[in-house]
Design a binder for these strands. Structure first.
Lengths: 342, 342
DNA sequence: CGGTATTTTGATCGGGATCAAATACGGTGG
DNA sequence: CCACCGTATTTGATCCCGATCAAAATACCG
């Protein structure tokens, strides 16, 4: 149920509005002067505020000013209602940041419509979407603003301690992000393919990169300037939500990988890595598919030595889970790989 | 530089406004009918739109309608400018979702103020803050809406597959989140203390919990209803930014932990865990402090067996890095612990 | 077809898990 | 305040997975 706050000194008018809104299904709060109004607004954080201008104690302009200073109440839609029909008064109200201005006398329908249209303007999607849906229009905007660049395979896109300047979008190709230990061993954190964004963690933290990114094969990336991304993120709730969803998904994935690294055998982890790569880069077809990936890249994904990966692949081949065509790996049964025990 | 789009069929008026805005430092785009206006708005995504109502090709109401259907243009401030001074026309414009309504004739100052006040209303903080600053008012709001609950030590707060119903805030005490492997071994992902939020990853993903949470000692938590949190997240850019910052910080931390788990010795990981716990729960005082933490909890943090933790602690004791008072661990030199080699 | 990079296989070694037993701790009740 | 008991911690002994170094085999590319 939506909360509405009415600040109005005339008892008749105030009670009339309260009654009307209660009938329309609002939870109503009312104040007979500005001082009480500001207190109620701060405490109740209503969804909309209707406010008279000329009042004892504190006038409407002051109420609006005070509410805008407070971050919690600054974004609540604020509608002035007043007999001051003069143009200058209305302009002053709007210039101070009111969202609408109703001149008395107004009828119930006008008031109701004014409230509904301000609430509608602020209503937002209720869930998060990580894929599809709105990402089409998002992508549209990003593509418009970004510039496309081609990268060869195994080319480095950014390295730790670089200052982030772009958000990246994979237009074509494959990209990995990875961290490097002091002794040079690498651990891949995530794989990205056509249609994925990457590089946003560091942008959101406003800090230097904490990982490296490189292409796995020839790729085309769209680079979106940091400032453009920040603008979108700050002005479009939809985009902020999309990235919130992506970030929290990423957190969960990494937690699972941590558990695997801590307690699962290399055998299980190699099997999981194959399943993951197949799901990411393989055609979403039947139970089998062919992967072209170097043993080093696989080892970085698993967090082990490349020799060990070789041995595991040999085992899997003996067990007829995979087949080898040259250096490419052909998965014979994803299901059986998924069922490898820890 | 801010972009402004003027949609107006009268050449005189349009050029007058363009000139004024250009002088005021705006990048201006102009359209002489609604059709061109919508195209320009979609392509340029201006920061503000001024639009006449009566125009050939497509009238102002239709322009507003079309722009509101498109997610990318829906949030751009939209100001009607028209000679239609009649009340009903103005109400129609506002009810459709316009942000302001200027009736001709208006002077430059009025127009300029109207634009500036709409831009100001939408301007947002430009960086992310993970700590302090605005979190005071945030916490204020959360505390107001949430309910406080007491938990004994080692009590479970939520478990995997529970449906998230709350955001949690630690008012007093210590909390850990952890994942459990099939064979029962646990891996702690994060420790939380007084002043930390937790449980937001799952809320942001709108999915079941993927980890467990339990208290380490007697604690008081504030439970904020999921709906209240979502409301705030969707309506306050500031709050969305705070959680974006927290999530991306969390991603980075987990990546580092992954690298440690994959390639660092248990010795190094135990040392790191001690440093981490000291930093989190110890007084932020000198080089030494005393920790009360069970070997099982430490082992879960490191991702190893508790016996191994015991052995490492014995080693550290021999090396005079720590001391033991009963079951409590007294760190003698955090610096030396930090310098343990991988 | 040759040369180089990648992958596989072999042999060895050590870190850390595991199971079992001993010891220490902390709380309880007399 | 002390003895006692259940739990937590430490120590001991053993074993195996996976790292490492070296060398052979194979794939890939011009």
């Amino acid at each position: 149920m939506k909360k509405a706050l009415i600040i109005e000194d005339s008892d008749d008018i105030r009670e009339g509005i309260v009654e009307m809104l209660a009938l329309a299904g609002y939870e109503t709060y009312s104040a007979k002067n500005g001082k009480i109004g500001v207190e109620l607004a701060t405490k109740q954080l209503p969804d909309i505020i209707l406010c008279d201008i000329m009042m004892p104690e504190l006038d409407g302009y002051s109420v609006l000013y005070l509410l805008q200073k407070n971050a919690l109440t600054a974004t609540i839609p604020f509608i002035f209602m007043t007999a001051k029909a003069e143009r200058a008064d209305m302009r002053k109200g709007m210039e101070m940041g009111a969202d609408d201005y109703l001149t008395k006398p107004f009828d119930d329908v006008e008031l109701f419509n004014a409230i509904e249209s301000r609430l509608k303007k602020r209503s937002k999607p209720t869930g998060f979407k990580t894929k599809g849906g709105d990402s089409v229009s998002l992508l549209e905007s990003m593509r418009a603003k970004g510039k496309t660049r081609s990268f060869a395979g195994k080319q480095i896109i950014y390295v730790e301690t670089d200052e982030p300047a772009h958000l990246y979008f994979v237009k074509k190709g494959q990209v990995k992000t990875y961290k490097r230990a002091k002794d040079g061993r690498e651990l891949s954190s995530t794989l990205y393919k056509e249609g994925d964004f990457f590089g946003y963690e560091s942008l959101c933290r406003a800090a230097a990169y904490s990982d490296n990114a490189a292409t796995l094969c020839d790729s085309e990336l769209i680079l979106i300037a940091k400032s453009d991304f920040m603008d979108d993120l700050l002005n479009h709730q939809e985009i902020a939500n999309t990235f919130l969803g992506m970030l929290s998904g990423s957190v969960q994935e990494k937690e699972e990988q941590m558990l695997r690294l801590a307690y699962f055998s290399v055998r299980k982890r190699v099997a999981d890595a194959l399943v993951k790569v197949a799901g990411k880069f393989g055609e979403p077809d039947s139970d089998s598919c062919t992967l072209r990936i170097s043993r080093d890249d696989l080892a970085a994904l698993v967090g082990t030595a490349s020799e060990t990966v070789s041995r595991m692949l040999a085992d899997f081949k003996d067990e007829k889970l995979i087949e080898k065509n040259g250096n490419a790996i052909q998965i014979l049964s994803i299901e059986k790989l998924k069922n490898v025990k820890q």
